[in-house]
Design a protein around this nucleic acid. Structure first.
Lengths: 109, 109
DNA sequence: ACATTCCGTAAGCCCAAACTTACCGTAAGC
DNA sequence: GCTTACGGTAAGTTTGGGCTTACGGAATGT
């Protein structure tokens, strides 16, 4: 159940900006920070969270580290979301076909 | 771009529990709160956030309000996620086929 | 060897948000 | 009518997390 940490990771706007920057391809930390209004250590911390969530993988090349989107983390989130997708469509279809009983209120106790 | 608030909404564990409870079908607020270790007002507040994010819709029936998953919010999240999915697969394929240039370091400035 | 570039980590601050208690409105049952 | 069940809102408290500054380590270039 790593989708929990993935959702928590993508909740933050700055972290989402980092993640979306990675969509174009592998990028070193400094380049990411240069395009954002936060310091480089902040970006490092965000990348750590994304990595722990399985959304990102890194590769050391010289003194730099290239970060890239990890398809596995994205796949896990997708799978979790799809469960809601299927159910919601079923419920919607069921409601269109015929309203159920109005559900009586429970007696006092 | 309502996926931003949707991600923020699903980041909280309690709110996610509420949302997952709704996966079985429409439920009144009290029933949700009964199954969670938080107070009923807390659940009300969480439902408000989920509703503002477009993930949930509500329907008044008597003194109760039935909450249910809103497929539209889920669809929006799915669409956003899929953009990463496609890109990540492309990048992975490109990397397998042939490593790009090692990327020289920039001179001092 | 030294200097430089790149990056991760520690410590600390500060604000957003999740929670509780208390209150009020509304609809249904008697 | 009154009472009771249900639920949204306000106010206040507290904890978590995102940020900065400062530091240390590792690899490259000369």
């Amino acid at each position: 159940m790593a989708y929990t940490s993935a959702l928590a990771a993508l909740a933050d706007p700055t972290r989402r900006a980092v993640f979306e920057r990675l969509r174009r391809g592998p990028v070193p930390v400094g380049v990411i920070a240069a395009g954002l209004p936060v310091s480089r250590p902040a970006v490092s911390q965000h990348l750590r969270v994304l990595k722990d969530a399985g959304l990102v993988r890194d590769e050391a090349v010289g003194t730099r580290r290239l970060y890239a989107v990890d398809p596995r983390g994205v796949a896990e989130l997708r799978a979790w979301l799809d469960r809601f997708w299927d159910q919601a469509l079923d419920a919607f279809k069921a409601e269109v076909e015929g309203k159920p009983q109005p559900t009586k209120r429970k007696k006092s106790r």
